[in-house]
Design a protein around this nucleic acid. Structure first.
Lengths: 355, 355
DNA sequence: ATGAAAGCGCTAACAT
DNA sequence: ATGTTAGCGCTTTCAT
């Protein structure tokens, strides 16, 4: 009893050809559905294939054609609901087109991103979908275009990189969100983000993530309009696993923030938790608004007012553009900006001290 | 000006060999880091490769070795936090081992699952990780083992399929959860699941998902222990996008349930919403417990009591086993059952009518 | 319409 | 240690 029987070699085009008594070329043509094959030939080949249990080897096919029908996708972290949704959006259009998806997490580090890109290129993906870890440094992404493979960015853009990108109207969204706060009378408003950052934010500074940069810009505009530059605060670099601490800092002390704009729903959740543990009631003691219409925002206390991004659509649209590029579309790179929509719930009220 | 310059052919081992003035075999050995190569040869080859910007073609490598260093993963829906976490767990160990992940969503249908499996096998994945859409029908999965590729299941098992699987202690978990309810005095307890199902559940019936089946079993055991068979109710087949309606049915009428066991956190969220809109206060008017320690469960009202599954670990462990199989481990299939842990919060209280 | 043979980029015997 | 030569399974000229 050897293990020989279990190592059953794969059935190849050659085997099918022999079984059908035709040439390898004819069998390949019939099986691959290309070239010219007469009806009875096709029939003969297919039944032979059926009999033998033939399964095409997609890799061999890729070797000769150069197209893998696989696209690579690099997200920050698939556990982040934002990325999970965007991935689903992309997967839906990609699969519908008969393509497959290779997924990697970058954890928002240039190092992992670079590695993932390298691996995926080596696997001959037909194109890449990436949420770049850095909007400033295009070096890791350069490998993609150098390899001649189309690349489309989503959620953020990269300076000096002429590629397609689909993002949301973050600037406008942040503006609307913040405006709600200033209109309610808030002045000590904090913008809170986990975007990797050392030390304090300096006005005018260029940020690592274009989407956060856009949000900050929208925030600043609303703040300026309210003349609250002196009291507003932009806090970046909160560690993902310790947002609570930073939020607590913001909410305590001699001049605590009376309102917070959270840069994403995960951050908002942390803020919400801290507010609860500090005995702060929303919106009475704290107004809270955030990006992304996470499931919990509707049920938390009075409901959190949010700016909803069309996340699924962002992923889907990015995939659509990529597929078009792969198909040979050589037109100028496009920047698609999808609208965000404000969903007002009950988490905004005038600051307590002002009433 | 043609586009010829942009179509730059890939640099191959042959090119590097020529540049380094060595044979193709030597270049390949140096580049592929196998066989025996002298130090200066290796040096010469690598610098030539560097000069030319050589990038190995992983596919060609796969063609000759038969190993793609790619593993396929099929989940129900990557947007479901459970699957997102399990995917991350698997991705972490897979990437650490130098493998890549091809991801597909089955939407819990046998059809999509079958298709995804077929595509992934064609892409020569070294093995598959799947949360089977059906625990009863092994036919779509049979293709995997027939192709001689290792398969490991996660979250659910499949009857009559001798493969590895890693699941959670659903039966025990459901028992504990339900026990909390019966101990508090509840009798009209409902178990609510979205598991595809026609009509009413009949006791003893075999279910499509082993994990739900296990949960139901645990539920039934606790119910029997409390002698509440007559008043407990098992409601399956709630449509994912309309759980609210089913929950509302359970919560209204002449004999509404006083407690609900939700089969996952998405369902629990719907129940929570319905309770809110019905003006039902948790736990005063309704006791609610669920599987999975979703982020919102800690902050919803009094906090929801849950059974937490080690989701990340489920994915990671499944990947670990798969990798071992790929490496040649031919031992008997294992069934790994990971413990669930009860997290008591404030969503359980005696039924209102009984006090 | 069909067949014979070359080739995709790599690895793996088999020499030397 | 290095080189030569076959393949891997498919597609793609090029003949016929």
């Amino acid at each position: 009893m050897g293990k020989a029987s279990t190592v059953r070699r794969e059935v190849t085009v050659g085997d099918v050809a022999r079984e059908a008594n035709v040439s390898k070329a004819t069998a390949a043509r019939a099986l691959g559905d290309y070239g010219a094959v007469s009806d009875d030939m096709r029939e003969r080949v297919h039944s032979a294939a059926e009999r033998l249990g033939y399964r095409p080897n997609e890799l061999a096919r890729t070797m000769s054609t150069g197209r893998s029908h696989t696209i690579g996708m690099i997200v920050g972290d698939i556990q982040n609901p934002f990325f999970a949704q965007a991935t689903r959006g992309a997967a839906d259009v990609i699969n519908a087109a008969g393509f497959d998806l290779i997924l990697s997490n970058s954890d928002e580090t240039a190092h992992s991103e670079r590695k993932a890109i390298s691996v995926q290129l080596a696997k001959q993906v037909d194109g890449l979908l990436v949420a770049p870890a850095s909007s400033l440094d295009a070096s890791s992404l350069a490998a993609v275009t150098e390899a001649g493979r189309p690349l489309v960015l989503f959620d953020r853009t990269v300076a000096d990189l002429a590629v397609d990108a689909v993002i949301a109207s973050n600037r406008t969204g942040a503006f609307e969100l913040t405006r709600l706060l200033t209109s309610a009378g808030h002045r000590r408003i904090a913008f809170l983000s986990t975007l990797q950052h050392d030390g304090d934010y300096r006005p005018g500074e260029v940020l690592l993530s274009s989407s956060v940069a856009d949000r900050v810009a929208g925030f600043e505009k609303a703040i300026a309009l309210a003349g609250a530059e002196g009291t507003a605060i932009i806090r970046l670099g909160a560690p993902r696993d310790d947002v609570e601490r930073v939020a607590a800092e913001l909410l305590t002390g001699s001049e605590p923030a009376t309102a917070i704009v959270a840069s994403d729903s995960l951050i908002a959740l942390s803020v919400y938790r801290v507010a609860q543990s500090l005995g702060l009631q929303i919106p009475r003691d704290l107004s809270l608004v955030t990006f992304d219409d996470a499931d919990w925002t509707a049920l938390a206390g009075p409901g959190i007012t949010v700016i909803a991004q069309p996340i699924h659509a962002i992923g889907a649209e990015a995939a659509r553009i990529l597929l078009r590029r792969i198909a040979g579309d050589g037109s100028e790179p496009v920047l698609r900006v999808l609208d965000q929509t404000l969903i007002e719930r009950g988490s905004v009220a005038p600051p307590r001290s002002s009433t």
